[in-house]
């Protein structure tokens, strides 16, 4: 049985800790991948935008809806449907739940990088 000294163990673990922390910091600092939002009307793709590249927010005018495109998030800001469920859903920034306006057949969804919260359930 080969003995491993405590000092060596601590050195290995400290190295791992430092590497992980550096990795976490780098992941924060480095630019993120694309966050692509797609807007569909009646099944047709009418607009795509990389939300991470949106510098100034703009409003996308659709026949019955208005979509607010911002940096990192997207939302339905106006709709002429009776219930306004799509507007009430607010801003989305991940792929977990797309915004759907059923009466006007508009779907806004985010593709690409998904967050961990999509499956963790907490």
């Amino acid at each position: 049985m080969k003995k491993v000294s405590n000092r060596r163990l601590i050195a290995i673990l400290a190295a791992l800790l430092v590497i992980s922390l550096a990795w976490m910091v780098l992941a924060r600092v480095l630019p993120r991948g694309a966050l692509i939002a797609e807007v569909y009307v009646d099944g047709r793709l009418v607009h795509t935008a990389d939300l991470n590249k949106v510098r100034e927010a703009y409003v996308l005018e659709l026949p019955h809806n208005k979509v607010l495109v911002e940096h990192g998030q997207i939302s339905m800001c106006e709709a002429d449907c009776p219930d306004h469920l799509c507007v009430k859903q607010g801003k989305i920034s991940g792929s977990a739940y797309p915004i759907v306006c059923l009466p006007n057949k508009v779907i806004i969804r985010i593709v690409g990088k998904s967050g961990v919260d999509a499956v963790s359930g907490r």
Binding site: L16, L17, I19, S20, L21, W23, M24, A27, K113, S114, V116, A118, V119
Partner: peptide, 16 residues
């Protein structure tokens, strides 16, 4: 399960 390697971004957090 997710068929995505995006979850590996979580590795350093889990190591710490």
């Amino acid at each position: 399960v997710m068929r995505s390697s995006a979850v590996f971004a979580y590795t350093p957090v889990l190591i710490v």
